[in-house]
Design a protein around this nucleic acid. Structure first.
Lengths: 182, 182
DNA sequence: CACCTAAGTTCACTTTCATATACTCAGCCC
DNA sequence: GGGCTGAGTATATGAAAGTGAACTTAGGTG
Protein backbone atom coordinates (compact mmCIF):
# COMPACT_ATOMS: atom_id res chain seq x y z
CA UNK A 1 0.00 0.00 0.00
CA UNK A 2 1.44 3.35 -1.00
CA UNK A 3 0.37 6.59 0.68
CA UNK A 4 1.12 9.95 -0.85
CA UNK A 5 1.75 12.56 1.78
CA UNK A 6 2.67 15.37 -0.62
CA UNK A 7 0.26 17.55 -2.58
CA UNK A 8 -2.31 14.88 -3.13
CA UNK A 9 -5.14 14.85 -0.62
CA UNK A 10 -6.12 11.36 0.38
CA UNK A 11 -9.85 10.94 0.67
CA UNK A 12 -11.59 8.23 2.64
CA UNK A 13 -12.68 6.80 -0.69
CA UNK A 14 -9.04 6.47 -1.78
CA UNK A 15 -8.09 4.71 1.42
CA UNK A 16 -11.11 2.52 1.05
CA UNK A 17 -10.49 1.40 -2.50
CA UNK A 18 -6.78 1.09 -1.85
CA UNK A 19 -7.22 -1.18 1.11
CA UNK A 20 -9.96 -3.48 0.05
CA UNK A 21 -9.68 -3.07 -3.70
CA UNK A 22 -13.31 -2.71 -4.47
CA UNK A 23 -14.76 -5.71 -2.71
CA UNK A 24 -15.79 -5.55 0.92
CA UNK A 25 -15.28 -3.31 3.86
CA UNK A 26 -11.99 -3.85 5.58
CA UNK A 27 -12.65 -4.49 9.27
CA UNK A 28 -9.23 -3.10 10.21
CA UNK A 29 -10.23 0.43 9.20
CA UNK A 30 -11.81 2.73 11.74
CA UNK A 31 -14.97 3.53 9.86
CA UNK A 32 -17.26 6.09 11.45
CA UNK A 33 -20.64 4.44 11.44
CA UNK A 34 -22.48 7.09 13.44
CA UNK A 35 -24.33 8.19 10.30
CA UNK A 36 -25.28 4.66 9.27
CA UNK A 37 -28.82 4.55 7.92
CA UNK A 38 -29.55 1.28 9.68
CA UNK A 39 -28.58 2.75 13.04
CA UNK A 40 -30.54 5.92 12.29
CA UNK A 41 -33.66 3.94 11.48
CA UNK A 42 -33.29 1.87 14.62
CA UNK A 43 -33.18 5.10 16.65
CA UNK A 44 -36.77 5.64 15.51
CA UNK A 45 -38.26 2.14 15.37
CA UNK A 46 -35.74 0.14 17.42
CA UNK A 47 -37.42 0.44 20.78
CA UNK A 48 -39.63 -2.29 22.09
CA UNK A 49 -43.30 -2.04 21.03
CA UNK A 50 -42.73 0.48 18.25
CA UNK A 51 -42.75 -1.97 15.36
CA UNK A 52 -45.57 -3.93 16.96
CA UNK A 53 -47.65 -0.74 17.14
CA UNK A 54 -47.01 -0.19 13.44
CA UNK A 55 -48.03 -3.77 12.75
CA UNK A 56 -51.35 -3.12 14.46
CA UNK A 57 -51.85 0.04 12.45
CA UNK A 58 -51.29 -1.97 9.27
CA UNK A 59 -53.73 -4.57 10.50
CA UNK A 60 -56.36 -1.90 10.99
CA UNK A 61 -56.13 -0.59 14.55
CA UNK A 62 -56.21 3.13 15.13
CA UNK A 63 -57.34 3.74 18.71
CA UNK A 64 -55.38 3.84 21.91
CA UNK A 65 -57.57 1.17 23.47
CA UNK A 66 -57.19 -1.15 20.46
CA UNK A 67 -53.40 -1.04 20.71
CA UNK A 68 -53.51 -1.56 24.44
CA UNK A 69 -55.82 -4.55 24.24
CA UNK A 70 -54.14 -6.47 21.44
CA UNK A 71 -50.56 -5.66 22.41
CA UNK A 72 -50.89 -5.90 26.17
CA UNK A 73 -48.45 -3.03 26.38
CA UNK A 74 -48.45 -0.65 29.37
CA UNK A 75 -50.36 2.58 28.77
CA UNK A 76 -47.54 4.95 29.60
CA UNK A 77 -45.21 3.29 27.11
CA UNK A 78 -47.94 3.14 24.51
CA UNK A 79 -48.58 6.85 24.94
CA UNK A 80 -44.86 7.62 24.71
CA UNK A 81 -44.35 5.50 21.58
CA UNK A 82 -47.42 6.92 19.85
CA UNK A 83 -46.28 10.45 20.61
CA UNK A 84 -42.84 9.66 19.22
CA UNK A 85 -44.25 8.09 16.07
CA UNK A 86 -46.43 11.17 15.52
CA UNK A 87 -43.47 13.50 16.18
CA UNK A 88 -41.45 11.56 13.61
CA UNK A 89 -44.22 11.84 11.04
CA UNK A 90 -44.75 8.08 10.84
CA UNK A 91 -48.24 8.31 12.29
CA UNK A 92 -50.65 11.23 12.29
CA UNK A 93 -53.57 11.96 14.59
CA UNK A 94 -57.10 12.44 13.39
CA UNK A 95 -60.31 12.49 15.39
CA UNK A 96 -63.16 10.07 15.47
CA UNK A 97 -66.51 10.28 17.18
CA UNK A 98 -68.60 7.34 18.23
CA UNK A 99 -72.27 8.31 18.36
CA UNK A 100 -73.03 9.29 21.94
CA UNK A 101 -69.42 9.90 22.86
CA UNK A 102 -67.16 12.88 22.64
CA UNK A 103 -64.61 13.04 19.84
CA UNK A 104 -61.31 11.33 20.56
CA UNK A 105 -57.98 11.06 18.76
CA UNK A 106 -57.06 8.18 16.49
CA UNK A 107 -53.81 7.30 14.81
CA UNK A 108 -53.37 6.79 11.09
CA UNK A 109 -50.30 5.95 9.07
CA UNK A 110 -48.57 8.48 6.85
CA UNK A 111 -46.69 7.84 3.58
CA UNK A 112 -43.46 8.00 5.59
CA UNK A 113 -44.83 5.24 7.78
CA UNK A 114 -45.91 3.22 4.76
CA UNK A 115 -42.31 3.30 3.58
CA UNK A 116 -41.40 1.13 6.56
CA UNK A 117 -43.50 -1.69 5.14
CA UNK A 118 -40.65 -3.36 3.20
CA UNK A 119 -38.47 -3.50 6.32
CA UNK A 120 -41.21 -4.98 8.49
CA UNK A 121 -42.25 -7.37 5.71
CA UNK A 122 -38.65 -8.59 5.80
CA UNK A 123 -38.99 -9.37 9.51
CA UNK A 124 -42.31 -11.08 8.87
CA UNK A 125 -40.84 -13.19 6.11
CA UNK A 126 -37.90 -14.35 8.22
CA UNK A 127 -40.21 -15.22 11.10
CA UNK A 128 -42.52 -17.11 8.76
CA UNK A 129 -39.59 -19.17 7.56
CA UNK A 130 -37.75 -19.86 10.80
CA UNK A 131 -40.05 -19.26 13.73
CA UNK A 132 -43.57 -20.11 12.60
CA UNK A 133 -45.77 -22.66 14.34
CA UNK A 134 -45.70 -26.13 12.73
CA UNK A 135 -49.00 -25.48 10.96
CA UNK A 136 -47.72 -22.28 9.36
CA UNK A 137 -47.84 -18.51 9.82
CA UNK A 138 -50.50 -16.69 11.84
CA UNK A 139 -51.03 -14.11 9.11
CA UNK A 140 -50.71 -14.37 5.34
CA UNK A 141 -49.96 -11.43 3.09
CA UNK A 142 -51.31 -11.35 -0.41
CA UNK A 143 -51.66 -9.03 -3.34
CA UNK A 144 -55.04 -7.37 -3.09
CA UNK A 145 -55.45 -7.31 -6.85
CA UNK A 146 -54.46 -10.85 -7.78
CA UNK A 147 -54.48 -12.73 -4.48
CA UNK A 148 -50.96 -14.11 -4.88
CA UNK A 149 -48.64 -14.33 -1.90
CA UNK A 150 -46.53 -11.22 -1.34
CA UNK A 151 -42.85 -11.16 -0.40
CA UNK A 152 -39.90 -8.79 -0.24
CA UNK A 153 -37.15 -9.23 -2.77
CA UNK A 154 -33.74 -7.69 -3.23
CA UNK A 155 -33.35 -6.35 -6.75
CA UNK A 156 -31.05 -3.95 -8.53
CA UNK A 157 -32.19 -0.93 -10.49
CA UNK A 158 -31.82 -2.86 -13.73
CA UNK A 159 -34.30 -5.41 -12.47
CA UNK A 160 -31.98 -8.30 -11.67
CA UNK A 161 -32.91 -10.41 -8.67
CA UNK A 162 -29.94 -10.12 -6.30
CA UNK A 163 -28.77 -12.80 -3.86
CA UNK A 164 -27.60 -11.57 -0.48
CA UNK A 165 -24.07 -12.58 -1.49
CA UNK A 166 -24.38 -10.44 -4.61
CA UNK A 167 -24.77 -7.21 -2.68
CA UNK A 168 -21.66 -5.07 -2.58
CA UNK A 169 -21.41 -2.30 0.01
CA UNK A 170 -19.27 0.67 -0.93
CA UNK A 171 -18.67 4.04 0.72
CA UNK A 172 -21.25 6.66 -0.13
CA UNK A 173 -21.13 10.47 -0.19
CA UNK A 174 -21.39 10.77 3.60
CA UNK A 175 -18.83 8.10 4.36
CA UNK A 176 -16.34 9.12 7.02
CA UNK A 177 -13.38 7.66 8.83
CA UNK A 178 -13.03 7.99 12.55
CA UNK A 179 -10.16 10.31 13.45
CA UNK A 180 -7.13 8.36 14.67
CA UNK A 181 -6.82 8.30 18.43
CA UNK A 182 -3.83 10.05 19.93
CA UNK B 1 -71.35 -1.76 4.13
CA UNK B 2 -72.16 1.87 3.52
CA UNK B 3 -69.95 4.04 1.37
CA UNK B 4 -70.64 7.73 1.23
CA UNK B 5 -69.09 9.10 -1.93
CA UNK B 6 -70.38 12.63 -1.45
CA UNK B 7 -68.84 14.51 1.45
CA UNK B 8 -66.78 11.83 3.12
CA UNK B 9 -63.28 11.17 1.88
CA UNK B 10 -62.41 7.49 1.86
CA UNK B 11 -58.89 6.87 3.05
CA UNK B 12 -56.83 3.73 2.48
CA UNK B 13 -57.32 3.09 6.19
CA UNK B 14 -61.06 3.01 5.72
CA UNK B 15 -60.80 0.58 2.83
CA UNK B 16 -58.39 -1.54 4.85
CA UNK B 17 -60.71 -1.66 7.81
CA UNK B 18 -63.74 -2.44 5.64
CA UNK B 19 -61.92 -5.30 3.95
CA UNK B 20 -60.94 -6.86 7.23
CA UNK B 21 -64.36 -6.78 8.83
CA UNK B 22 -65.13 -10.22 10.07
CA UNK B 23 -61.93 -11.77 8.75
CA UNK B 24 -60.16 -11.83 12.09
CA UNK B 25 -58.15 -8.66 11.56
CA UNK B 26 -60.92 -6.39 12.82
CA UNK B 27 -59.39 -4.21 15.53
CA UNK B 28 -62.36 -4.84 17.78
CA UNK B 29 -61.70 -8.57 17.83
CA UNK B 30 -59.31 -10.10 20.33
CA UNK B 31 -56.73 -11.59 18.01
CA UNK B 32 -53.99 -13.62 19.64
CA UNK B 33 -50.81 -12.18 18.23
CA UNK B 34 -48.42 -14.17 20.39
CA UNK B 35 -47.40 -16.26 17.40
CA UNK B 36 -46.91 -13.27 15.10
CA UNK B 37 -43.84 -13.75 12.92
CA UNK B 38 -42.84 -10.11 13.30
CA UNK B 39 -42.84 -10.40 17.09
CA UNK B 40 -41.02 -13.73 16.90
CA UNK B 41 -38.29 -12.25 14.74
CA UNK B 42 -37.95 -9.27 17.06
CA UNK B 43 -37.41 -11.67 19.96
CA UNK B 44 -34.20 -12.70 18.19
CA UNK B 45 -32.94 -9.50 16.58
CA UNK B 46 -34.91 -6.83 18.42
CA UNK B 47 -32.43 -6.10 21.18
CA UNK B 48 -30.09 -3.17 20.97
CA UNK B 49 -26.78 -3.91 19.14
CA UNK B 50 -27.94 -7.17 17.56
CA UNK B 51 -28.74 -5.79 14.13
CA UNK B 52 -25.70 -3.54 14.24
CA UNK B 53 -23.52 -6.58 14.92
CA UNK B 54 -25.05 -8.26 11.87
CA UNK B 55 -24.39 -5.12 9.84
CA UNK B 56 -20.72 -5.36 10.73
CA UNK B 57 -20.61 -9.02 9.80
CA UNK B 58 -22.03 -8.11 6.39
CA UNK B 59 -19.46 -5.37 6.06
CA UNK B 60 -16.69 -7.87 6.68
CA UNK B 61 -15.95 -7.95 10.41
CA UNK B 62 -15.60 -11.30 12.11
CA UNK B 63 -13.57 -10.79 15.28
CA UNK B 64 -14.64 -9.78 18.74
CA UNK B 65 -12.20 -6.87 18.75
CA UNK B 66 -13.46 -5.61 15.36
CA UNK B 67 -17.04 -5.45 16.61
CA UNK B 68 -15.97 -3.80 19.82
CA UNK B 69 -13.92 -1.13 18.08
CA UNK B 70 -16.35 -0.12 15.35
CA UNK B 71 -19.54 -0.41 17.41
CA UNK B 72 -18.25 1.00 20.68
CA UNK B 73 -20.49 -1.50 22.42
CA UNK B 74 -19.68 -2.75 25.93
CA UNK B 75 -17.79 -6.03 25.92
CA UNK B 76 -20.17 -7.92 28.15
CA UNK B 77 -23.15 -7.02 25.96
CA UNK B 78 -21.21 -7.86 22.82
CA UNK B 79 -20.31 -11.27 24.22
CA UNK B 80 -23.93 -11.90 25.21
CA UNK B 81 -25.30 -10.88 21.79
CA UNK B 82 -22.75 -12.93 19.88
CA UNK B 83 -23.51 -15.99 21.99
CA UNK B 84 -27.22 -15.53 21.34
CA UNK B 85 -26.73 -15.13 17.58
CA UNK B 86 -24.65 -18.31 17.52
CA UNK B 87 -27.23 -20.16 19.62
CA UNK B 88 -29.92 -19.08 17.16
CA UNK B 89 -27.87 -20.29 14.20
CA UNK B 90 -27.58 -16.83 12.67
CA UNK B 91 -23.84 -16.72 13.18
CA UNK B 92 -21.40 -19.61 13.49
CA UNK B 93 -17.97 -19.72 15.06
CA UNK B 94 -14.85 -20.73 13.18
CA UNK B 95 -11.24 -20.33 14.16
CA UNK B 96 -8.54 -18.19 12.66
CA UNK B 97 -4.84 -18.05 13.40
CA UNK B 98 -2.63 -15.03 12.92
CA UNK B 99 0.98 -16.11 12.40
CA UNK B 100 2.68 -16.00 15.80
CA UNK B 101 -0.55 -16.10 17.74
CA UNK B 102 -2.70 -18.89 19.01
CA UNK B 103 -5.90 -19.75 17.18
CA UNK B 104 -8.93 -17.70 18.19
CA UNK B 105 -12.64 -17.79 17.39
CA UNK B 106 -14.23 -15.70 14.67
CA UNK B 107 -17.84 -15.23 13.72
CA UNK B 108 -19.25 -15.90 10.27
CA UNK B 109 -22.76 -15.61 8.96
CA UNK B 110 -24.91 -18.62 8.18
CA UNK B 111 -27.58 -18.96 5.45
CA UNK B 112 -30.17 -18.34 8.16
CA UNK B 113 -28.40 -15.08 8.95
CA UNK B 114 -28.21 -14.18 5.27
CA UNK B 115 -31.98 -14.47 5.13
CA UNK B 116 -32.20 -11.43 7.40
CA UNK B 117 -30.64 -9.30 4.68
CA UNK B 118 -33.97 -8.19 3.10
CA UNK B 119 -35.27 -6.98 6.48
CA UNK B 120 -32.14 -5.02 7.29
CA UNK B 121 -31.94 -3.67 3.72
CA UNK B 122 -35.42 -2.34 4.35
CA UNK B 123 -34.21 -0.46 7.40
CA UNK B 124 -31.22 0.83 5.45
CA UNK B 125 -33.43 2.02 2.63
CA UNK B 126 -35.77 3.91 4.94
CA UNK B 127 -32.86 5.55 6.72
CA UNK B 128 -31.29 6.51 3.39
CA UNK B 129 -34.51 8.20 2.40
CA UNK B 130 -35.49 9.95 5.62
CA UNK B 131 -32.51 10.19 7.92
CA UNK B 132 -29.42 10.51 5.72
CA UNK B 133 -26.96 13.38 5.94
CA UNK B 134 -27.57 16.19 3.41
CA UNK B 135 -24.82 14.88 1.13
CA UNK B 136 -26.34 11.41 1.01
CA UNK B 137 -25.94 7.95 2.57
CA UNK B 138 -22.78 6.74 4.27
CA UNK B 139 -22.86 3.42 2.45
CA UNK B 140 -24.18 2.50 -0.98
CA UNK B 141 -25.33 -0.96 -1.93
CA UNK B 142 -24.90 -2.21 -5.46
CA UNK B 143 -25.22 -5.36 -7.47
CA UNK B 144 -21.80 -6.98 -7.61
CA UNK B 145 -22.38 -8.24 -11.12
CA UNK B 146 -23.73 -5.13 -12.84
CA UNK B 147 -22.95 -2.30 -10.42
CA UNK B 148 -26.52 -0.99 -10.30
CA UNK B 149 -27.99 0.26 -7.07
CA UNK B 150 -29.75 -2.42 -5.03
CA UNK B 151 -33.06 -2.02 -3.20
CA UNK B 152 -35.76 -4.09 -1.57
CA UNK B 153 -39.09 -4.37 -3.32
CA UNK B 154 -42.43 -5.83 -2.38
CA UNK B 155 -43.65 -8.21 -5.07
CA UNK B 156 -46.21 -10.93 -5.34
CA UNK B 157 -45.51 -14.46 -6.48
CA UNK B 158 -46.79 -13.64 -9.95
CA UNK B 159 -44.16 -10.94 -10.26
CA UNK B 160 -46.31 -7.85 -9.81
CA UNK B 161 -44.72 -4.94 -7.98
CA UNK B 162 -46.97 -4.33 -4.96
CA UNK B 163 -47.58 -0.99 -3.28
CA UNK B 164 -47.82 -1.03 0.51
CA UNK B 165 -51.53 -0.25 0.15
CA UNK B 166 -51.95 -3.26 -2.11
CA UNK B 167 -50.93 -5.74 0.58
CA UNK B 168 -53.81 -7.59 2.15
CA UNK B 169 -53.28 -9.38 5.45
CA UNK B 170 -55.51 -12.35 6.15
CA UNK B 171 -55.52 -14.96 8.91
CA UNK B 172 -53.18 -17.88 8.19
CA UNK B 173 -53.13 -21.52 9.34
CA UNK B 174 -51.86 -20.66 12.83
CA UNK B 175 -54.23 -17.74 13.36
CA UNK B 176 -55.91 -17.82 16.75
CA UNK B 177 -58.35 -15.70 18.70
CA UNK B 178 -57.69 -14.91 22.33
CA UNK B 179 -60.11 -16.75 24.62
CA UNK B 180 -62.79 -14.42 25.97
CA UNK B 181 -62.02 -13.19 29.47
CA UNK B 182 -64.25 -14.33 32.28
C1' DC C 1 -75.27 16.63 38.76
C1' DA C 2 -73.40 12.15 39.54
C1' DC C 3 -71.68 8.60 36.64
C1' DC C 4 -69.39 6.45 32.58
C1' DT C 5 -65.66 5.99 29.23
C1' DA C 6 -61.43 6.53 26.32
C1' DA C 7 -57.33 8.42 26.72
C1' DG C 8 -54.21 9.44 28.94
C1' DT C 9 -50.73 10.85 33.46
C1' DT C 10 -48.27 9.79 37.82
C1' DC C 11 -45.84 6.97 40.67
C1' DA C 12 -43.51 3.07 42.85
C1' DC C 13 -41.03 -0.85 41.61
C1' DT C 14 -38.21 -4.08 38.71
C1' DT C 15 -35.43 -5.26 34.93
C1' DT C 16 -32.31 -4.21 31.47
C1' DC C 17 -28.66 -1.35 29.53
C1' DA C 18 -24.53 1.56 29.68
C1' DT C 19 -20.02 2.48 31.38
C1' DA C 20 -15.91 1.45 33.63
C1' DT C 21 -12.61 -1.15 35.78
C1' DA C 22 -10.48 -5.20 37.09
C1' DC C 23 -9.58 -9.93 36.35
C1' DT C 24 -8.93 -14.63 33.76
C1' DC C 25 -7.20 -17.74 30.37
C1' DA C 26 -4.36 -19.88 26.84
C1' DG C 27 -0.83 -20.00 23.96
C1' DC C 28 3.26 -17.66 21.60
C1' DC C 29 7.68 -15.14 22.24
C1' DC C 30 11.85 -14.09 24.38
C1' DG D 1 8.72 -18.42 33.32
C1' DG D 2 7.26 -13.67 32.71
C1' DG D 3 5.12 -10.62 29.51
C1' DC D 4 2.04 -9.85 25.59
C1' DT D 5 -2.40 -10.42 23.18
C1' DG D 6 -7.24 -11.42 21.88
C1' DA D 7 -11.20 -12.90 23.78
C1' DG D 8 -13.58 -12.92 26.91
C1' DT D 9 -15.69 -13.02 32.44
C1' DA D 10 -16.86 -10.61 36.93
C1' DT D 11 -18.46 -6.93 39.35
C1' DA D 12 -20.14 -2.34 40.61
C1' DT D 13 -22.75 1.76 39.73
C1' DG D 14 -25.92 4.71 37.56
C1' DA D 15 -29.25 5.63 33.86
C1' DA D 16 -32.95 4.23 31.13
C1' DA D 17 -36.70 1.37 29.99
C1' DG D 18 -40.38 -1.65 31.21
C1' DT D 19 -44.37 -2.94 34.35
C1' DG D 20 -48.58 -2.52 37.03
C1' DA D 21 -51.79 0.06 39.56
C1' DA D 22 -53.93 4.19 40.93
C1' DC D 23 -55.34 8.59 39.57
C1' DT D 24 -56.99 12.43 36.21
C1' DT D 25 -59.56 14.56 32.57
C1' DA D 26 -63.35 16.04 29.62
C1' DG D 27 -67.26 15.63 27.51
C1' DG D 28 -71.74 12.87 26.91
C1' DT D 29 -75.64 10.29 29.24
C1' DG D 30 -79.36 9.15 32.65
Amino acid sequence: MKVNLGEVRITPMDVWTEVHQGTGMDPRLDRDMSNCSIARTLEVVGEKWTILILREVWYGSSRFSDFERVLGCPRNLLAARLRMLVDEGILATETYKEPGSRSRPKYVITPKGMDLVPAVMGLLQWGDRYRADPEGPAVLTRHRECGAHVEVQVRCERGHAVEAEGIESVPGPAFRMRPAES
